[in-house]
């Protein structure tokens, strides 16, 4: 019973932060950009969803779609402002990272100026029913969160495997120089990648707002958790990110059950540091030296 509860919590945490982790991972491996602007994308998408719920309709799919679209727009903004001007400049990795941090600073201040510091909440997307499975209560939002993120991840994986654009992105992941030689445009691929990963962050934002609120700085914790998971799973590996998300979700759920909520980050970071000391490139860090720019 208790273990099942911990497991279900772990899966939910993993589902949300895993989305951001996969987004960070894909961006890094295909574009070589460490995007720390997902915190901004996260809040930005949340505000889009909130505005839709306020002014258009409270129909759940529409809200979710608005969040996803907002995230994609936020990602494309980062791509246009930071990635495209910088990708062929010296020191791209450092400058790109600082640039995305600057975007995150500017963006969250702009949101603060526009919407004020008060947190906003979204309506319940999945209703408020509950199912008893094997003796434990699963609320609607938990099931919805897991299903939605699994769906999104599945769509992304199928799209990456099956479509022409996905092939381009995978080619960029393998060898960016060779990909550009055979005619895959770095800039256009950058826009696809950032729109896709931004959409994932947007969905994560909508899903997380079922538990928390939307505020100008609410994207920070998900970003840090997502980045840690991506790091732990190995930057550039989707499977690694999923495994790491499960492990860290398990740690979080177990810690908050047995030790208390304030120790969650500590145990998580101990786990991360231990994993990274054993495997410096993450659980399945495939591209040890592949991504060198």
């Amino acid at each position: 019973m208790e273990i099942a509860q911990i497991l279900s919590n772990a899966i939910i945490v993993a589902a949300i932060y895993g989305l951001i982790a996969v987004a960070v991972s894909i961006t890094w491996s295909s574009l070589g950009l460490i995007n720390l602007g997902y915190g901004f994308v996260f809040s930005f998408a949340g505000y889009w969803a909130w505005l839709t719920a306020q002014h258009l309709s409270e129909w759940p799919p529409l809200i979710a779609a608005a969040g996803i679209l907002g995230g994609a727009v936020g990602g494309v903004i980062i791509c246009l402002v930071v990635f495209i001007p910088l990708h062929d400049k010296p020191n791209f990795t450092t400058r790109g990272m600082i640039g995305t941090l600057a975007i995150s600073l500017i963006g969250s201040q702009a949101l603060l100026m526009q919407f004020g510091p008060r947190a906003k909440s979204l309506p319940e997307l999945f209703g408020s029913w509950q199912v008893d499975v094997a003796g434990m209560a699963l609320t609607s939002d938990k099931i919805g969160i897991v299903l939605c993120s699994a769906l999104m991840l599945g769509v992304v994986v199928i799209w990456m495997k099956g479509s022409r654009r996905g092939l381009e992105i995978r080619a960029m992941m393998m060898n960016p120089h060779a990909a550009s030689i055979v005619g895959i445009g770095i800039r256009s691929t950058g826009i696809y990648v950032m729109a896709l990963t931004g959409a994932m962050a947007g969905l994560a934002s909508v899903l997380l707002s079922q538990t928390y609120y939307i505020a100008p700085f609410s994207g920070l914790t998900p970003l840090i958790k997502g980045v840690s998971i991506a790091l732990c799973g190995g930057l550039g590996s989707v499977q690694g990110a999923v495994i790491a998300a499960m492990m860290l979700g398990l740690t979080e759920a177990a810690t908050s059950r047995f030790l208390g909520g304030q120790y969650v980050l500590i145990t998580q970071f101990l786990v991360i540091i231990m994993i990274l000391i054993v495997r410096p490139h993450g659980i399945s860090g495939l591209l040890d030296k592949a991504r060198e720019q």
């Binding site: 460490i34 720390l36 990795t93 990272m97 920070l220 914790t221 840090i224 980045v227 840690s228 991506a230 790091l231 930057l235 304030q262 980050l265 500590i266 970071f269 991360i272 540091i273 990274l276 000391i277 410096p280 490139h281 993450g282």
Partner: peptide, 29 residues
């Protein structure tokens, strides 16, 4: 200690997390 093993941006992201860890630890203690 992690800096001995990790390189470049892995370390940057890890220290970003460490910073957050300190914040949470001190604000909740």
């Amino acid at each position: 200690i992690p800096a001995l093993r990790l390189d470049g941006f892995y370390y940057a992201l890890l220290t970003l997390g460490l910073n957050e860890l300190c914040r949470v630890f001190f604000t909740t203690t």
